[in-house]
Design a protein around this nucleic acid. Structure first.
Length: 552
RNA sequence: GCGCCUGUAGCUCAGCUGGAUAGAGCAGCGGACUUCUAAUCCGCAGGUCGGGGGUUCGAGUCCCUCCAGGCGCGCCA
């Protein structure tokens, strides 16, 4: 609908310039927005204000001229008024709202779908947790954000890939093996030493017990035992992670192993390319990449004195591989503690000749945990943290996802376990889901009373005359442009607020008016209205990966 | 010391990328179920948008500066 209005305004400007109602000037940018205050119409534009300077005339006079010459062949606009500061407020003809509701009912699950992405290949890499321990809440926040983003990008016409990068090499993995080994030895000898930087969590002990049951460790010498435990532990941890994510409704298209980068020679290839571009140098026996030429604070080591590649080297070649695979855009979701790393990876990619802006890194801020009114300090070292699985088992996938997604990822999230564990109105997800369940209940009642709906609403909708009814349709009309904005800005949290508002409007309406009454046509009209809300809530929740229950 | 993020109602957070009188939920107080689901609704109260400058028709939003909190500044991964 915004588009229609934009067209009308453009045509009007053309006319005014051609006929000399306005002086010639470069056309300024203007916006069409949906005012908060219903008195200000369905749409408003700042057009007259932006023209004022160039026209050497007051916004009010210009607005007057525009309103008088509106090019509106379809009678889209019911009325146009001049607002306080020079805004032009438009009231849309009621028929337009009925048409929109009909459209929603025809399109169903596809209402709001758009072609912003034009089928471009885009990748979102997220979670990418080390297979050295179970997923915790921070991973959960990343999983919810990444997955929801993928759903929205897919809905917006992108060809989306979800990818999980497995850090299955390096020191941390060896420590995992050593930790398990030590716990296994401690079964028979409690005084056996535990590695200083070993993983403390109980799961290590459980892994040791499990593996000991399946495998004869006694026959192996210490090195072989640790090697074996490293392999088995890593695989088992990864399986746990996969299980947790599937349970959280997150499924990846590709699980990419760091170790494959070595075996496939991709690291060498990526480094050669940088060398060709003359951006490598040796110093102190190590190999460096000149990232400082591309906005990094300093140059970075890519191969250590001992001949081993750094983690940075594998990451650079991994991203180079993403580029080679033809993704037009890549989004990474990282914990905020990695922010120091962003610039150097971007710089290295530019050193590979990849354009600036190809990689977008979203940093998720910390999840702070509260329980019993006090902060629960988390640390990997002490093994004290709340596993994602525990929370999901307690309150369900829907509530956890919704809470994670209801805040902008740039702000730290305070997560009160007591609060979210309560399965009452405290939890905003129920508010939205309840609206959906309520509407389903209305339809059950309608079926019982044998009220049937024609396939297309047609003129029945003209029975919707209440302000609240039109306001509900207006709210539904916002959805498509909201989806686009979210896809551009990568901000799914806005959807949770939209859904809460929509549900709220419906709850209020429901409490004040009966959908089903003796008046058959009115009942049908209101059932169509409710159907529209139901479609919107279901579509919106599915973009968040949250279910829309028929009963609660 | 340098860099990134944050600071909005008692608490947790929105604020549509610069627009009109800054909004929700929770907590507090007072109301609404013989009705399609009360996990709901209605009303009251609650604010120097961290402080100070600047940019312009117009700033919670952009710039500068200061203050406070979080995170990061490895030839670790």
């Amino acid at each position: 609908m915004k588009k229609k209005l934009a067209k009308i305004l453009e045509d009007t400007l053309d006319l005014c310039l051609k006929e000399g109602y306005l002086r010639q000037m470069p056309l300024p940018e203007f916006v069409i927005e949906i005012p908060n205050n219903p008195d200000h119409g369905n749409f408003a534009t700042n057009l007259a204000m932006t023209l004022a300077k160039g026209q050497k005339n007051s916004p009010q006079n210009i607005a007057e001229i525009i309103i008088q010459h509106l090019v509106d062949h379809d009678h889209f606009i019911l009325k146009a008024e001049i607002g306080g500061a020079g805004f032009i407020n438009f009231f849309v003809a009621t028929e337009q709202w009925y048409d929109l509701l009909s459209q929603i009912i025809t399109l169903r699950d596809d209402y709001g779908r758009n072609s912003l992405g034009k089928g471009e290949k885009i990748m979102v890499e997220f979670v990418s947790a080390n297979p050295t321990g179970p997923l915790h809440l921070g991973h959960g926040r990343g999983a919810a954000l990444g997955d929801s983003l993928c759903r929205i990008l897919d809905f917006s016409g992108y060809d989306v890939s979800r990818e999980f990068y497995i850090n299955d090499g390096g020191q941390q993995i060896n420590i995992l093996g050593e930790s398990i080994y030590s716990r296994w030895r401690q079964i028979s000898d409690p005084s056996y030493p535990f590695p200083e930087d070993g993983y403390q969590g109980d799961y290590i002990h459980e892994l040791a017990l499990e593996i000991a049951k399946e495998t004869k460790l006694e026959n192996l010498d210490i090195h072989d035992a640790i090697d074996l435990l490293t392999e088995l532990g890593k695989d088992k941890m990864l399986n746990e992670i996969k299980k947790d994510l599937a349970n959280f409704r997150v499924n990846f298209d590709l699980w990419y192993k760091e170790s494959d980068l070595y075996s496939s020679g991709k690291i060498d290839r990526a480094i050669k390319l940088i060398e060709k571009r003359d951006l490598l140098f040796e110093k102190d026996g190590a190999l460096w990449i000149r990232t400082s030429s591309f906005g990094d604070d300093k140059d970075r080591v890519i191969r250590k004195k001992d001949g081993e590649f750094t983690y940075f080297a594998t990451d650079v070649s991994y991203h180079f591989d993403k580029w080679k695979r033809g993704f037009r855009k890549v989004i990474n979701i990282w914990g905020a503690d990695h922010h120091g790393y962003v610039n150097r990876v971007k710089a290295a990619l530019m050193a590979e000749g990849i354009p600036d802006g190809w990689l977008d890194v979203l940093l998720i801020q910390l999840v702070k945990l509260w329980q019993g009114g006090a902060e629960v300090k988390m640390s990997k070292r002490s093994g004290r943290y709340v596993p994602l699985r525990e929370l999901v088992d307690d309150v369900g996938v829907d509530a956890v996802r919704f809470v994670f997604l209801s805040k902008d990822h740039t702000s730290p999230l305070d997560f009160d376990i007591d609060l979210v564990k309560r399965k009452d109105s405290e939890n905003p997800v129920y508010y939205v889901q309840y609206a959906h369940a309520r509407i389903c209940s209305i339809f059950r009642k309608a079926a019982k009373e044998n009220i049937q709906l024609p396939e297309h609403p047609g003129s029945i909708l003209q029975r919707l005359v209440l302000d609240e009814e039109i306001a509900l349709i207006r709210k539904m009309a916002e959805f498509p442009s909201l989806v686009k904005e979210i896809a551009c800005a990568l901000e799914p949290h806005r959807l949770t607020y939209y859904l809460t508002e929509l549900a709220g409007s419906f709850h209020r309406y429901y409490n004040r008016h009966r959908v089903i009454s003796d008046d058959k046509n009115l009942s049908q009209a209101r059932l169509f209205l409710s159907l529209g809300v139901k479609i919107l809530i279901k579509n919106g929740l599915s973009l968040l990966g949250v279910s829309a229950p028929e009963k609660m």
